[in-house]
Amino acid sequence: ASATEVAEIIGGVAGHAFDLSCEIPLRAVLLRTGVDEFVLAAVVHHIAADGWSVAPLVADLQLAYAARAVGRGPQWSPLPVQYVDYTLWQRECLGDLADPDSRISGQVAYWEQALAGLPERLELPTDRPYPAVADHRGASIPVSLPADLHRLIRQLAREHNVTTYMVVQAALAMLLSKLSASSDVAVGVPIAGRGDVALDQLVGFFVNTLVLRVDLTG
């Protein structure tokens, strides 16, 4: 297969839409690109893995491949916990949403109050109108900070006893406020959700999204 064909096939694999009612949340395709060259393309549904999961998943694949290449089975190191342990702990910790005194009910009530009246979206100046129905196709734009700018951000953070992230987030909130002419700005921030080192080597979905809502009035 040519490089173009390989890229097209990988794109098709990456765009696979899982039917979780009858499919496992992992799909892999092995492509032969030469006499002794292969490309493995794999896609995992987000319900089963997050970005952090890529490292332990690839490490396990490398260990298994190296072992099989010399005719041995992989020598796995037992994990201290499994994903099911995490889910059971979370259920025990948060309780039942139907129980008004449970921790999960309290958290839901907090966020309902914190996000009350939040506009559905910031009205940003775009080059085309918003679609009537969201297609949920996203994209990313890489941003590179020059070394001099990064040094200034770190210096500003030290002066105000905050993190560099807090400086950048504040700047982003101000930029969005100016572009939208709104003093009510909310930014969704993904967090790893792995608060215990025992979870570091687990493949699973731990990510959550926090909403940082800022009132820039005045």
Results as ranks from 00 to 15, higher is better:
10 I>S: 09
12 G>P: 00
12 G>M: 07
12 G>V: 09
15 G>W: 02
16 H>I: 14
19 D>T: 12
21 S>L: 06
21 S>R: 11
22 C>I: 10
23 E>M: 08
24 I>K: 15
25 P>Y: 04
29 V>F: 01
32 R>A: 14
34 G>T: 09
35 V>G: 15
37 E>L: 10
37 E>V: 03
38 F>S: 11
39 V>Y: 02
39 V>G: 05
39 V>R: 05
44 V>E: 00
45 H>P: 03
46 H>R: 10
48 A>Y: 03
48 A>I: 05
48 A>V: 05
50 D>S: 08
51 G>S: 09
53 S>C: 06
54 V>K: 13
54 V>C: 13
56 P>G: 14
58 V>K: 05
60 D>C: 03
61 L>H: 04
62 Q>Y: 00
64 A>E: 07
64 A>G: 09
67 A>P: 05
69 A>G: 07
73 G>N: 14
73 G>D: 15
75 Q>T: 12
75 Q>N: 14
76 W>F: 15
77 S>L: 15
81 V>A: 07
82 Q>N: 04
82 Q>G: 06
86 Y>E: 06
88 L>E: 13
90 Q>D: 05
92 E>V: 01
94 L>P: 06
95 G>T: 08
95 G>H: 09
95 G>R: 04
97 L>K: 10
99 D>S: 08
99 D>G: 10
101 D>C: 13
102 S>R: 10
103 R>Y: 12
104 I>H: 09
105 S>K: 10
106 G>I: 10
109 A>P: 01
109 A>T: 09
113 Q>D: 13
115 L>W: 00
115 L>A: 10
117 G>Y: 05
117 G>P: 01
122 L>C: 10
124 L>S: 10
124 L>M: 08
126 T>A: 12
128 R>V: 08
130 Y>F: 14
132 A>D: 09
134 A>G: 10
139 A>K: 00
140 S>G: 07
144 S>H: 10
145 L>F: 14
145 L>H: 00
148 D>R: 14
150 H>W: 11
152 L>G: 11
153 I>T: 08
156 L>F: 04
159 E>S: 07
161 N>G: 05
162 V>Q: 02
162 V>P: 00
162 V>I: 14
162 V>L: 06
163 T>M: 09
164 T>G: 04
164 T>F: 00
164 T>V: 11
164 T>I: 03
166 M>S: 04
173 A>C: 11
174 M>S: 13
178 K>D: 13
181 A>R: 15
184 D>I: 13
185 V>A: 11
188 G>I: 09
189 V>I: 15
191 I>N: 02
193 G>K: 03
194 R>F: 05
194 R>K: 07
195 G>R: 01
195 G>Y: 00
196 D>R: 09
196 D>C: 08
198 A>I: 02
199 L>I: 04
200 D>H: 12
200 D>Y: 02
200 D>W: 06
201 Q>L: 08
202 L>C: 01
203 V>P: 03
206 F>M: 14
208 N>V: 12
211 V>I: 15
211 V>C: 12
213 R>C: 15
213 R>D: 13
214 V>L: 13
215 D>E: 13
216 L>H: 07
